[in-house]
């Protein structure tokens, strides 16, 4: 794979203009839903990450519209319900959503308007993929991107339940699951995500995960110098880290950012459901089936004997006689 270009380093620098062959192929998969034996990829792509600096975000929604345009979705014109979030939630036509929280900082008594770009976090240990029953409906590339392959999706919604961030949405139109792809189709040809490209303040940057962590360090230092003592990087270890990370001014309280999970991990219920239940369930069912077959083959069947048939006949005849006698009596 010597000649193939690795993932782009940044969305800020100018991406290649010459046509490029796709850089994300089946052989770059490190996980595939409902697939146990996936061949080990021949190469390891550099892990990428999108870094969303919440402290730089002005909530302009350029990312949202870029995402709609690039993915050619068609979100409905809704209504105002008293908030700036529009649509009001992620939908199968809106892979990313600015969530606005008016938070009064108890320490300073100042209002802070926290604006977080919600969307798939591209977990290293993706709960969606774990939950998915359809082979190949969800895949993970060695650069960290978790992608939905809609042709394979059956629309069961298990990914919705598997995801610790409540991200995937099932389309009412085609009954397939949708979420941010991290613009895998753009990244595959050396371009950064559409949202990062559109972001006017570079609140969204994209590059290798390592570079993004370094970039975040600089941002965090800046925030600390401005009095945000708890500024930090949100890269939750509970899901093995994520390929979409946040710089938060209050990293000690992720929940104030429109309920960003404090310590996300794949739910224990999901783990049990997709783990023990499956093994134990299959085992007991097979055992029961095998047991009955064996019993059926080798044990004596429970048969009715001739003698029993006769007993029955006798009983019936007796009853008839009795009855007739009674009738006569009457």
């Amino acid at each position: 794979m010597a000649n193939t270009m690795d993932s782009p380093r940044t969305a800020v620098s100018n991406p290649p203009v010459q046509p490029m062959e796709t850089n994300l192929t089946q052989r770059d998969l490190i996980r595939r839903s409902a697939t146990s034996e996936l061949p080990q990829p021949e190469r390891q792509l550099t892990p990428v990450a999108k870094l969303i600096d919440v402290s730089k975000c002005i909530g302009c929604k350029a990312c949202q519209s870029a995402c709609v345009e690039w993915n050619d979705t068609n979100p409905a014109v809704g209504e105002n319900v008293g908030v700036y979030e529009n649509p009001h939630d992620l939908t199968a036509d809106m892979f990313t959503l600015m969530r606005f929280t008016e938070w009064v900082n108890p320490e300073t008594d100042n209002l802070e308007w926290l604006i977080r770009k919600d969307g798939c976090m591209h977990c290293a240990d993706p709960g969606c993929l774990k939950a998915c029953p359809a082979p190949g409906a969800i895949v993970q590339y060695s650069n960290g991107i978790v992608d939905f392959i809609h042709d394979n999706c059956i629309g069961c919604g298990y990914c919705v339940k598997g995801c610790p961030f409540n991200i995937p949405r099932i389309s009412k139109a085609d009954h397939r699951a949708y979420k941010c792809t991290l613009c895998s189709d753009r990244v595959a040809v050396g371009q950064g995500p559409a949202c990062a490209k559109a972001c006017p303040t570079q609140a969204i940057v994209f590059g290798t995960k390592e570079d993004m962590k370094k970039h975040a360090e600089g941002r965090i230092a800046d925030l600390k110098s401005r009095g945000y003592a708890n500024a930090g990087l949100y890269d939750p270890p509970g899901v093995g880290g994520t390929h979409v990370m946040y710089v938060l001014h209050h990293n000690d309280k992720p929940q104030i950012y429109a309920d960003l999970p404090v310590d996300p991990k794949i739910s224990a219920v999901v783990q049990t459901w997709k783990g023990a239940t499956k093994y134990a369930g299959l085992a007991v069912m097979s055992l029961a089936a095998a047991g009955t077959i064996l019993h059926g083959l080798f044990a004596k069947a429970n048969r009715v004997s001739k003698h029993e048939e006769e007993e029955a006949k006798e009983l019936v005849d007796e009853s008839v006689e009795h009855a007739e006698k009674r009738e006569e009596d009457a």
Binding site: I58, G59, V68, E69, N74, P75, V77, G78, E79, N86
Partner: peptide
Amino acid sequence: LTEHFHYWTKHNRVNSALQPEFF
């Protein structure tokens, strides 16, 4: 509002979806 440009982006569905209604 940042989602709209005056009275013309309301003719565009994407902008309209991002900020649909007068408030």
